[in-house]
Amino acid sequence: MADHTNSVENTDKHEFYKKKHREQMKHQVVTFVMMIAFTLIAFGLVIAEVSAMFTIPIILVLAAVQVLFQLYYFMHMNEEGHQWPAVMIYSGIFAAVLTILALTTITWW
C-alpha cells in the first residue's frame, strides 16, 4: 500500500480522483433536487385531489424512480464492482414484488 517512492505521481492521481469525485458530487446534487421535485409532485397531486385513477399510478412510478436514483447515484450502483449487489437487489425486488402481489390480490377471505 505504501507508495513513498512515487509521491509526484501520487499527488497527480490524488488530483485526478478529487476531480472525479467532484464531478460525481454534482450528479448527486442534481439527483437530490429531482428527488425533492418528485416528492413535491407526489404530495401536490394528492393534496390537489386529482382523480385517484390518475394519481395512484403516477405516485407509484415516481416512488420507483426515486428509489432507482437512490440505488444508482446515492448508493453508487452505477459504479463498477456492483454486479453482484445488483443481482441480489433485483432478486430481492423480484421476491418483494411477488410477495406484495400475493398479499394484495389472493389474500382471500
Binding site: P85, M88, I89, S91, G92, A95, A96, T99, A102
Partner: peptide, 21 residues
C-alpha cells in the same frame, strides 16, 4: 452488506404486503 439489504427488501415487502392487505 449489499446482500443483507437484498434480504431486507423482502422483509419490508412482507410488511408492506401485510399493511396493504
Amino acid at each position: 452488506f449489499w446482500f443483507f439489504l437484498g434480504g431486507e427488501t423482502v422483509l419490508f415487502a412482507s410488511l408492506f404486503g401485510t399493511y396493504l392487505a
